[in-house]
């Protein structure tokens, strides 16, 4: 009889890898190329104007805009927010069907087939980064031809969220395994990171001390979103550099 620990390890085939991301707010220009790239990569439904007005738009990544100061002396702060892939995620525990669970590489995986649509996970998420298919998605011709074959299309009644482009992660891992080599840092990137013109987003393995992402995550500019909730997010936000503050004081 295997112990619980062995059983868990068997289920998980644990890898020494923890994917994470760094968002440099100093570099973000709010261009929203990431939002577009994410939509294209992950077959996210375009809900249309009427639904979007009702608050049902689905953008796995959104660029939050915060205005500081009074007109005309206004500073705009851009903050791209997407699933923080929490270490201790509140969304995972509340799911009755394990549709939301923690995978072996530190991601909050969402198994669409298991989801019955209680929407509890979306309530529990403090970052409002879970999206629900209120309607069946549809794509006008010829947009249906641009769907990504590596990503399943979600039907009505299912919760979905940022996966850190798990299809790209899996593909890269399989390629590396086939070639019998280690994954190199920066060998592949999620769509949002790939499309960011200012390299405000950096993706990589947080458990590799040499990777770019783990070096940046250790920056003294770094902080986590709503860190005091104890969710242990995998995303680090780098606040704007001191040069900015110095110029404006």
């Amino acid at each position: 009889m295997a112990t619980v620990k062995e059983q868990t390890q068997k289920t998980y085939r644990l890898k020494k890898r923890r994917w994470g991301m760094v968002v440099d707010e100093d570099r973000c220009t709010g261009c929203e190329a990431c939002v577009l790239a994410c939509h294209a990569e992950n077959n996210i439904a375009i809900v249309g104007e009427g639904q979007a007005v009702r608050g049902r738009a689905m953008h796995w990544i959104r660029v939050e805009r915060y205005y500081e100061g009074k007109f005309p002396d206004v500073k705009v702060k851009y903050q791209p927010v997407f699933c923080q892939q929490c270490g201790d995620a509140p969304c995972e525990v509340v799911c009755p069907t394990y549709a939301s669970y923690h995978n072996a590489e530190g991601l909050n995986a969402q198994v669409y087939n298991r989801c019955i649509g209680t929407r509890y996970c979306a309530n529990a998420c403090p970052y409002d980064d879970r999206f629900f298919n209120f309607e069946n998605p549809s794509w006008d011709k010829p947009l249906n031809l641009q769907l990504n074959p590596d990503v399943s299309v979600r039907s009505v009644g299912i919760m979905e969220k940022c996966t850190f482009c798990i299809q790209r992660i899996k593909a890269a891992e399989m390629n590396a395994e086939a070639a019998k080599r280690q994954l190199a840092d920066g060998e592949f990137n999620p769509a949002c990171v790939q499309s960011c013109p200012t390299e405000a987003l950096v993706f990589g393995d947080l458990d590799d001390p040499e990777s770019k992402v783990s070096r940046l995550a250790g920056s003294n500019r770094g902080s986590k979103l709503l860190e005091d909730l104890g969710t242990k997010p995998s995303v680090t936000y780098l606040r704007r550099g001191t040069w900015y503050d110095e110029q404006n004081t």
């Binding site: 009702r54 608050g55 409002d128």
Partner: peptide, 15 residues
């Protein structure tokens, strides 16, 4: 028949 979308629910008011 039409999905839960016929309710007034939205993001973030999922319940």
């Amino acid at each position: 028949d039409n999905g839960i979308g016929v309710s007034g629910l939205d993001r973030p008011v999922f319940w």
